[in-house]
């Protein structure tokens, strides 16, 4: 095969698969621009003219509040999780202390435990602490993130040169100073990748809010999308538009971040 033919064939193969990936999104987006009645009668392939009307219907359901809740939850979870993981990773990667290996094995073990294991008692705990009327129960589980600790430990171990830390120490730099000024700048790729992952996981989280959140003013996006169905049981088009709007932020985030996301994965721990 000539190189030119190879190129064409390979690009064609990927293009076909990409259509498979995109088609459901495309149909959804298009469906959101039609009037409800049309969805039952026509096959819709090109954008319709009912987008603004559907937008009004969605806006009337205070979807902006749902958005805000999701942003608060996901941003706080991401910041806290990445910071706490980096601290623990620094301790494991560059310090010696008693029972270090045992504690690290324990962290690895907890990585294997499904998040649902403690959920029944977690809900009771949140009720007992009188936090179930707030967004905090959706943030707290992400703070101690075993995957994040493992990720950061691996990355700091390989990316941060110990000599640099030692000479900073000799120059009289405090431990906290070393962490912020010497460690953090070396691990930006790991921070980006972990941030994107935690943001994605918490943005998409459904089971926990479904069980804990019972006030509509605290709904996050996944709950908001499903409740759009309750409010407009007859208005499929508005619901579909809400669906599209709810997935938009993560799409945008990864559209801009996917390159550094993959770079971070490559530099990170998948080496085995």
């Amino acid at each position: 095969m000539s190189p030119a033919l190879k190129k064409t064939l390979a690009t064609l193969a990927i293009a076909v698969l990409s259509i498979f990936s995109l088609l459901p999104f495309y149909i959804m987006t298009i469906m959101g621009t039609y009037q409800n009645e049309d969805l039952f009668t026509k096959i819709v392939l090109v954008p319709g003219s009912y987008l603004l009307e559907n937008l009004k219907t969605v806006a009337a359901s205070r979807f902006d509040l749902v958005y805000l809740n999701s942003l608060i939850v996901s941003l706080s979870s991401t910041v806290l999780s990445v910071f706490v993981s980096a601290c623990a990773g620094f301790a494991f990667a560059k310090h010696e202390f008693k029972h270090k290996n045992k504690i690290f094995s324990f962290v690895l073990l907890t990585m294997m435990i499904p998040g649902q294991l403690g959920i029944v008692a977690y809900v009771i705990e949140m009720r007992y602490l009188q936090l179930s009327g707030t967004l905090l129960p959706l943030i707290l589980p992400w703070v101690a993130n075993a995957f994040g600790v493992y990720w950061m430990t691996q990355f700091i171990r390989s990316a941060v040169p110990t000599e640099v830390l030692e000479s900073a120490k000799i120059d009289g730099c405090s431990d906290i100073g070393i962490f912020f000024r010497m460690v953090i700048p070396f691990i930006y790729p790991a921070i980006t990748t972990l941030s994107l992952l935690v943001f994605l996981w918490s943005w998409n989280n459904y089971l926990l809010p479904l069980i804990i959140i019972n006030k509509p003013e605290l709904y996050t996006i996944p709950l908001g999308i499903t409740s759009l169905g309750d409010a407009y049981r007859t208005d499929l088009a508005a619901q579909i538009l809400g669906l599209t709007l709810g997935t938009l932020p993560v799409l945008v985030l990864f559209a801009f971040g996917s390159k550094s996301f993959i770079r971070g994965l490559t530099a990170g721990s998948v080496k085995g």
């Binding site: 910071f83 706490v84 993981s85 601290c87 623990a88 620094f90 301790a91 494991f92 310090h95 010696e96 202390f97 270090k100 504690i103 907890t110 435990i113 294991l117 403690g118 959920i119 029944v120 008692a121 977690y122 009771i124 705990e125 707290l140 589980p141 703070v143 101690a144 075993a146 600790v149 431990d175 962490f179």
Partner: peptide, 24 residues
Amino acid sequence: VPYAFLSPYLLFYLAFGLFPIVFS
């Protein structure tokens, strides 16, 4: 020092990870 860097993780895990698992 290492324990100080480790403690946020451990405390949050004990309170909102391990405790619910044991209580469950």
